[in-house]
């Protein structure tokens, strides 16, 4: 905020110097934050890539030698292809579920809530004011073996009599869906709210049924929200290890767990190779997805 204030000192100068002055003020304002991101976001990513090519026989204490060990990657993918696939599948299912649950909710808030709109919006976010971990532990109780949900599922025949929900993929996907739902609902809400409601009325006036109106007008116009929401849900879910650790089976973990475990064990090159692969895969998938959905202007 010192920028405009500082510029007053020179404001008596001739106006021909203003564009250059403006430009340097822009740089000055940007500089501290940009340096922070360069030092603690860009540099670490470079270091991560470097670490992923270090000699895997080194250690944190003894230091690592740069040996361009591309083998770290092939080894990591050999050993961890299963958690990789599982992580992406769980995240994918959770994202689809979030969309299926979140869309009606966002739609109801925008078109049906009337004067309760603000209240409903607050209610959507309110449960997420509690700690992420405390919330996830609550799911542990809800899905517990002697709990209400399991017994209901047993009565309905959805779970075997000796079956359980906790420590299964179901519990992990349920946790992911729950924890990342607001990231889906809020962008959907924003895009539906922005939509010109007269267009939907016009569709009705032109004898479109409500279903046709939704399919041909509302849904296409809300696509930016759908794309933003699915990305904001999928990316954090794909790297998450909390839900898998607290609710899932310890033998069927997601890729986030593998990365975390490897780092804790001190196998930095292998863990870095996994992280770089995860990041690269996500970037490729996001790029393809955005191109397919035709919403490049989002970025």
């Amino acid at each position: 905020m010192s920028g405009p204030a500082a510029s007053t000192a020179t404001s008596t100068e001739t106006s021909t110097t203003t564009p250059r002055k403006r430009r340097s003020i822009g740089w000055l304002l940007l500089l501290p934050g940009a340096l922070w991101l360069a030092a603690f976001f860009v540099t670490p990513l470079v270091q991560l890539v470097a670490t992923s090519l270090y000699d895997p026989n080194g250690s944190v204490e003894a230091g690592y030698a740069m040996t361009w060990s591309w083998g770290n990657y092939t080894e990591a993918l050999d050993f961890y292809s299963e958690p990789f696939i599982r992580g992406f599948v769980y995240a994918g299912i959770a994202t689809v579920l979030c969309l299926l649950i979140g869309y009606p909710l966002a739609y109801a808030i925008v078109f049906k809530a009337g004067r309760w709109k603000n209240l409903m919006l607050v209610l959507v976010i309110a449960p997420f004011f509690t700690s992420f971990l405390v919330r996830t532990l609550a799911w542990k109780l809800i899905l517990a073996d002697n709990g209400f949900v399991v017994s209901t599922f047993k009565t309905l025949g959805l779970v075997d009599d000796d079956g359980r929900l906790l420590a299964t993929g179901f519990a992990v996907v349920a946790g992911l869906t729950y924890n990342f739902l607001p990231f889906m609902v809020l962008p959907l809400y924003a895009s539906l709210e922005r939509l010109d409601h007269r267009l939907i009325e016009a569709a009705g006036d032109l004898y479109a049924s409500p279903a046709q109106g939704f399919r041909k007008v509302t849904l296409p116009l809300s696509m930016p929200g759908v794309v933003a929401g699915t990305l904001l849900t999928f990316i954090p879910s794909a790297g998450d290890f909390i839900n898998s650790q607290l609710l899932g089976d310890t033998n069927q973990t997601m890729i986030g767990n593998s990365i975390q475990t490897l780092f804790e064990a001190g196998s930095y090159p292998a863990a870095s190779a996994l992280s770089v692969t995860l990041m690269a895969l996500i970037i490729v998938m996001v790029a393809i997805y955005i191109r397919r959905a035709g919403t490049e202007e989002l970025l």
Binding site: F41, V42, P44, L45, L48, G239, F241, L278, V286, L299
Partner: peptide, 22 residues
């Protein structure tokens, strides 16, 4: 550069900083 940290999985952000610090 401002958009990217929001689009990165947290596990990558954390891991890369750890790699740098160590």
């Amino acid at each position: 550069v401002i958009f990217l940290p929001m689009a990165s999985p947290e596990v990558v952000l954390g891991a890369s900083l750890l790699a740098l610090f160590v």
